[in-house]
Design a protein around this nucleic acid. Structure first.
Lengths: 193, 193
DNA sequence: GTCGACATGTAACCAGTTACATGATTAA
DNA sequence: TTAATCATGTAACTGGTTACATGTCGAC
């Protein structure tokens, strides 16, 4: 995804952080949780250490500004907000027409693909673990949906959420079908190899 | 995905290569194309240079063996095949019950998520580019399906292929709906900001 | 008295990338 | 003669990770 950074451009993650900062002034710490609950579902959830690194880079570039806030009974923190330059850079990146293809990585599919010699019961257990993850996602999504549905303010978040929801439904149907098919198959020819 | 390599274990990519080698003797070069056409769709398509590096590592571990083949009117090549040790390691990995959650990375969704200030026409163009990518995938999948459907030999490949197909259909429906919704929206309030 | 939330960061590491080198053969 | 396919690899780099350090506060 945007591997060969075209001409002194920033890596995608930098824009992701910039985008999050653009909507409101936040600290690195809060940014981490924000990312986990939003773009983490369809793009990526960086480690805290990397968020801090990105913030330093964006500050150095003049894309965000830093404001120290002293707190009582809490560690001090630094709040970041986007600058005019930052807004321009973000907009320029957003408006680039090319969109690199999506990347999917599924350990479950990889193990299933090589599953010829795996005991069917193991495969089924792995699929059921995958199923639990799907249900967990679905629950998360439905909770977010309750919060943001039909609010004009969250229109774009809702569009991306819908993508997650339809994919998750598709995944659920697939995993159920596949578990069934494996069960049938292994009951038909028990231990024939 | 398998970030903290548990206890002297190999990274997932090493097992992916090992799995591909396990089904037949191949060269690094062929492996690259094999990966692109199979696990590339749901896991990963490594750069050639990395495939060669993995093959060296697997050879050093005794999981694959190397055989030099001299060719006329072609560069010589090295064919790799799995060893008994390699089969054992692969099986042990395949049978580990935990499956790390899937990872999705979508630049399109990221740009859409931050799309509040993007001109609707740009967003629609990006979505249409995404749509083309989906159709391309669907065409690939249907071609593969024609080759492997209902062949017992390709049972597991077919299961993973089906996952790709249902996801792609879901993605297509979503992208069409979203384009529609954006068109409606931008025609209703033309340039109101 | 210990754990988790808050808050920011350093250091070491590695997986994976791009760019490039090499060199023969074949098709346009 | 230019480019693509075959075939393997090196070198330099970077994005991102884990593990850890530091210190306060409130809850159990």
């Amino acid at each position: 995804m945007a591997k060969k950074t075209p001409d002194g451009e920033l890596p995608t993650t930098a824009y992701a952080v910039l985008g999050l900062v653009s909507s409101c002034e936040t600290s690195g710490y809060d940014l981490k949780r924000l990312a986990d609950q939003s773009i983490g579902y369809f793009f990526w959830s960086p480690a805290s250490s990397q968020i801090y690194a990105e913030l330093r880079r964006l500050t150095a570039l003049g894309y965000v500004r830093e404001r120290e806030v002293e707190q009582e009974r809490r560690p001090d923190k630094r709040l970041y907000s986007i600058t005019v330059d930052g807004e321009r850079a973000l907009r320029r990146w957003l408006e680039r027409p090319e969109v690199a293809p999506d990347v999917h990585k599924s350990l479950l599919l990889l193990k299933l693909f090589f599953g010829k010699a795996t005991p069917p019961s193991t495969l089924i257990a792995q699929l059921e673990e995958g199923r639990r993850q799907i249900l967990k996602n679905l629950a998360d999504f439905e909770e977010i949906e309750r919060r943001i549905a039909d609010s004009e303010e969250h229109f774009f978040a809702y569009m991306t959420l819908k993508s997650g929801i339809v994919h998750t439904h598709a995944a659920l149907r697939w995993v159920d079908d596949t578990i069934e098919e494996l069960k049938d198959r292994s009951s038909m020819e028990p231990q024939t190899e």
